[in-house]
Design a protein around this nucleic acid. Sequence first.
DNA 1: TTGAAAGCGCTAACAA
DNA 2: TTGTTAGCGCTTTCAA
Lengths: 317, 317
Amino acid sequence: MRRDAVERSKLILETAERLGYRPNASARAMKSGCFNAIGLVQGFDVRRSNLPDELLVGVHQTVLKFNQHMVLARLPDEKLASTGFVPKILRELMVDGLLVCYSHEIPTGMIELIREHAIPSVWLNVHQEFNSVRPDDIQAGRLATEHLLRHGHRKIAFCDFEHDEAFMFGPLSHYSLRHRYEGYCQAMKEAGLPTRLILGPKRREESEFPQPPVRLDWLEESDHPTGIVAYGGWGLLRVALRAQEKFGDLRAISMVTVNSRVQICEDIAIDTVILPQQQIGREAIELLQKRIQDPLKSIPSRVIPCELRAGFSVKKA
Amino acid sequence: MRRDAVERSKLILETAERLGYRPNASARAMKSGCFNAIGLVQGFDVRRSNLPDELLVGVHQTVLKFNQHMVLARLPDEKLASTGFVPKILRELMVDGLLVCYSHEIPTGMIELIREHAIPSVWLNVHQEFNSVRPDDIQAGRLATEHLLRHGHRKIAFCDFEHDEAFMFGPLSHYSLRHRYEGYCQAMKEAGLPTRLILGPKRREESEFPQPPVRLDWLEESDHPTGIVAYGGWGLLRVALRAQEKFGDLRAISMVTVNSRVQICEDIAIDTVILPQQQIGREAIELLQKRIQDPLKSIPSRVIPCELRAGFSVKKA
DNA sequence: TTGAAAGCGCTAACAA
DNA sequence: TTGTTAGCGCTTTCAA
């Protein structure tokens, strides 16, 4: 009997497949009351809501584990600012929760819109106490600095070649810049060393030309820094090339940066504090499951530590 | 009466909004028989299925117009190769059509899997006669070459610093490389000039270090090319730097490349044949609508012409 | 003009 | 163990 049943169910499954039967996800959703879907909300502007590939990989892997799928909602930034526009993903019921990816200049009303509609949501890379996941940028700054200190450097500067001071301490900058700088300052203070902040002229839109030159004047000082902790970006190449010119060595200035992956600069792999993007994606989805289960309960944000990956851009001082 | 009805319906809509009512997309899908959703299928490996941001923007804009949303399916490449694994997006009914983004090394069985399940689909950036959208890479190669010819160059080479010959003419390379080369050859032949192909040693994985050096030996020849058409990638920077060293001018060798956007190389905007990614995204979605309406009818692939955007990397010969 | 009901495909609960 | 049915939320159709 039992044996019979097993065989029969097997036959049924085979026949179903042969006939190309596929269960209807909508019907199942309606019955079960949940969509098995997570919405990913971001803007059209990449810089507003940058989503590194590594993070997406983490997200997809985890979503797969929960047998969910992702619904992508890329929202037109201008329309969102204007009155009354509500994107489809908020207007209709179609996902169980939202992953919100706005790190810079979050569109007006986005936050209220999401709260009003009471959809369980988790934010990526924003500095808020609850319901978000982000890397520990303070620790990242520390790690980078301590790495240079371990190599005997004493004159270490923190550099961001792409932003000026007004921007860095203004309302439009991302907290990660200030946090990494803070971590750098902490490490320097603990080592009893003075801090130094080197900022650049503000660069223009990426597609614009010409860009203002990267600030390299500090390299001309007799007592110039021997190591730098960089916020990111491509300025490091210019530093290396200038070092090549001046000291005959691309690696004359030791450099550490913070990034999602190791960046190659003139065939030199940069020593990098790796942002744990994949893990961030994973934990964000896991956090979101909890929020879906109990939408009213806010959950403390998760702050994920970073790891240093040594390259070839740091020498003994 | 009529007036009354209008006011009443307004009141109802307001109340609905106030109470946070949102129609259930699944219920609607079940009733209407269509999901108003497009699935985007890609692999985890970025190089296998690269999806430039511009293309996604075009896709999202168009999908918005049709009141659809995107479902993202990132498929684990290994599992797909192994027997029996069928991803959720194919296993269940949840989208009206698929946008398939595999340009390189399409996983075994992916094609049959999609055909077997008979889901209307459009492929991106593949060389097939029906149901795909891609840029006109032959024309791209021509445009780049003609641009150099117009500037008086006669010794023009086609370069790809990242692949060797075995790869280029082997089964694993992307058709776009051969097409761009073909376009280059056509233009040179029409001008009565000899062609020259410069390939590099194969580069290793992006994250690996060190990379083999870019081939620059041709620059040492007395009769070296004065202009190059490049397939893409970062080799141009090395050429410019070598030109700087040798001729005291970063722009001594005129360079044109093909890319989704203008690339800045040592503050020089490269003359670029722009791949019309946004339009590709748009047309792909439009094509997909037709396929959804009539799934049995194959539609000839659309080949989108490119445009040249002048920069500062081409000088009169 | 307004209201009731049927049915989309599925599953969980219930009856045979 | 097996087969039947109710109902998820929506829209369309039909009846009042």
